[in-house]
Design a binder for these strands. Structure first.
Length: 119
DNA sequence: AACTTGACGAGGG
DNA sequence: CCCCTCGCCAAGT
């Protein structure tokens, strides 16, 4: 499958990311699992790097609760700064609490999640 | 066609 | 907590 030429494939990722509320985050792997077999965490990251301005890419972080933009063209720590401005708190080691901020689309909430954490 | 490079993730030490 | 190894998969050389 050629993702670069498959508009529909990338749109599925964008549609989902656009739904993440301000102050909440999702992980690359979580998105991949939600979209299906053809998606992997690495692929989601690749697709996101070519997203437009209408996609809140900063709300997607890795499974450790950290931002992974250190080797890109954008300034280091930019993603974390934007998230902090949206209300997401990070520890000194650059990690945020997935317990607090991880978001799930309607109908995909895990059974053990706290009701107060649902959007 | 072979090899390298990531906006990744899980498991060990 | 940090670091490494693997498995992963699409792109770029």
């Amino acid at each position: 499958m050629n993702i670069a030429n498959d508009k529909n494939y990338r749109e599925r990722v964008y549609e989902l990311v656009r739904q993440i509320p301000k102050g909440r985050v999702m992980t690359y792997g979580q998105i991949a699992r939600l979209l299906g077999e053809a998606y992997t965490a690495r692929t989601v990251g690749y697709v996101l790097h070519g997203s437009g301005d209408d996609v809140p890419w900063q709300r997607v972080i890795n499974a450790q609760g950290k931002c992974s933009t250190g080797r890109l063209t954008i300034p280091i720590n930019l993603q974390q700064e934007i998230l902090e401005s949206e209300g997401v708190e990070f520890s000194a080691s650059g990690k945020c609490s997935l317990e607090k901020y991880l978001w799930y689309p309607k109908g995909f909430e895990p059974d053990d999640i706290q009701p107060t954490l649902l959007s």
